[in-house]
Amino acid sequence: MGRLDGKVAVITGGASGIGLGTVELFVAEGAKVVAADIQDEKGAMLETRFPGVVRYAHCDVTKEAEIAAAIGLAVSEFGGLDILFNNAGISDGMREIPAIEAETWSWIYDVLVRGPALGMKHAVPAMLARGGGSIVNTASIAGLQAGFGPIAYSSAKAAVIHMSRVAAAQLSPQGIRVNAICPGLIATSIFGASLGLPRAVADQMAARVAENAAKVQPTHKAGVPDDIAQAALFLASDAAAFVTGTHIVVDGGITVGPRHAWDQSGPSPFAEMFGEALASSPPA
């Protein structure tokens, strides 16, 4: 028996990366899924892999009509909606404040904040018709601490975390739970895409991320899409019936503290400071 038997889910960004991993896991756990994405060829392949279980919806989350259509497809094809995973994401190269471009800033927020907000807007009526549901929003550790992403991306992900909390306060009394996941360094194409690389090249770059990720975090394994999919499965399932308005950090421990907290060979500014002080102190 699957943990999502009888459930219907919509997953944005469902044709690759974290979204694809979540589609595969949700199907294995008994759900029927609408994979919403802009990668039509990959979406068609998903329908072929999972006939009668996965439907693909072309969905640019900056376009409200396409979000509404994806939700509508879940209702018309599978009879309703129980789970929404707002996962579609992008990044950018605006790391320095003087380099901010207004149009790029707006685009980042349209995809990462406005998209999930509109997803919730259109999902809520369908979920209420089923007696409730679960909404999961992909945030990021970049929304928790500085240094893990460009400025627009990071501040947008911080907005997603707080938006999830506010939405949970409003929707939980109606039986709809809302939570966020904060991934760490996960081997997907988003890193290459943030550098402006073509999609095919960005996909290949994910392998390089996987090769090097384990070196920069306490958990010596690369983060992979299934790590986030497993967290999404928990939040989507009845196992998380008492969990709402929070965020789960899935990052291999990279945010537990500075490197010297978990790597004894790493430089500690305190050790250096006190070491210098002791070295310069006169003998007793």
Rank of each mutant, 00 (worst) to 15 (best):
T62A: 12
T62F: 09
K63E: 15
K63H: 14
K63V: 15
K63L: 15
E64R: 08
E64F: 03
E64W: 07
A65W: 00
I67K: 03
I67Q: 07
I67S: 07
I67Y: 04
A69K: 12
A69S: 14
A69N: 13
A69H: 13
A69Y: 07
A70K: 03
A70R: 05
A70T: 07
I71G: 02
I71D: 04
G72N: 06
G72V: 09
G72Q: 06
G72D: 07
L73M: 15
L73V: 13
A74R: 06
A74G: 11
A74F: 10
V75P: 05
V75R: 07
S76K: 09
S76P: 09
S76Q: 11
S76G: 01
S76C: 00
E77R: 09
F78V: 04
F78N: 08
G79Y: 04
G79I: 05
G79T: 02
G80T: 03
G80S: 00
L81T: 03
L81V: 04
D82N: 13
I83A: 03
I83P: 03
I83H: 07
L84W: 07
L84H: 04
L84G: 12
F85P: 05
F85S: 09
F85R: 02
F85C: 12
F85Y: 12
F85Q: 04
F85T: 08
N86L: 07
N86Q: 02
N86C: 01
N86K: 06
N87K: 01
A88T: 02
A88F: 01
G89P: 01
G89L: 01
G89A: 04
G89H: 02
I90Y: 06
I90W: 03
I90D: 07
I90A: 05
I90F: 09
I90G: 06
S91K: 01
D92Q: 07
D92M: 00
D92H: 03
G93E: 12
G93I: 00
M94Y: 10
M94K: 08
M94N: 11
M94G: 10
E96A: 15
E96G: 11
E96N: 14
E96W: 10
E96L: 15
I97T: 12
I97G: 11
I97P: 13
P98N: 13
P98L: 13
P98H: 11
P98G: 14
P98F: 08
P98W: 05
A99P: 05
A99S: 14
I100M: 15
I100R: 09
E101I: 00
E101A: 02
E101F: 00
A102I: 08
E103A: 09
E103D: 13
